[in-house]
Amino acid sequence: MNAINDTFLKLKNAGEKGLVVYLTAGDPDFKSSLSYLRAAADGGADILEVGVPFSDPTADGPTIEAASRRALAGGMNVRKALELVHELQKTHSTPVVLFGYYNPFFRYGQTSLWKDARAAGVDGFLVVDLPYEEAGVAIDEMRKEGLCWIPLAAPTSGIGRIREFDRAGSGFMYLISVTGVTGVRDMFPPEMLSWSGKVKSAVTLPLAVGFGISTPEMARQAVRHADAAIVGSACVKIVERDGRSSRGPARLCQFVRSLKSALR
């Protein structure tokens, strides 16, 4: 059984909601990035979303765009991101979703990527700009390797499309809370709750809500009709501020702990 499914099953049995933490691989360098990922896991992240940086992240806001730039300046790429996951798995068994844009994955070579990723300990993939219609072959190949294809559902998707994703995907479904790019927001749009409720009742996959969640309170709101909250930019901001400082991972760990305690 895939570790992501296992995690959601355990959360359900414990009556808890899940926390997915996003960090950009290699931000600001390989070693610091590993410390931050470990800190997030220690703080109680149930799943880690490890972002492979891309030069042109069109679905990301300024925070993650800046993190991508820092990581690329430090020489991060797909191969090194897999090494990073491999290192992480030596100390932590937290499931890992590799997140990224299609071109670096395509350039790496799709078929060898799934194999290498599995070997490194990756459990699933979320490719922002590889929508369902273009993902057919990738989904089949991933399934054969035991990897989850994590579908994205947007406020503009419509329930019909979302049902299709639900059949094709595995692990969980990533529900985008707002039309827009990633980034910290103060509140959700008013229609978010009714909409996530509608999606929840239409799908069988666990539902994780992301985009804009910046506080434990928002995380709690996000999971009213969902199984997990995804926090990215708010965590990346800690990395942005503290960088290579040894206090950074401790601060991130504390923040993640505060998020997770709101979900218990």
Binding site: T58, D129, P131, Y132, E133, A154, T156, R161, I176, G180
Partner: peptide, 9 residues
């Protein structure tokens, strides 16, 4: 069509 899901519809 290689875009984020939000733009697909």
């Amino acid at each position: 069509r290689y875009v984020a899901e939000t733009l697909m519809s």
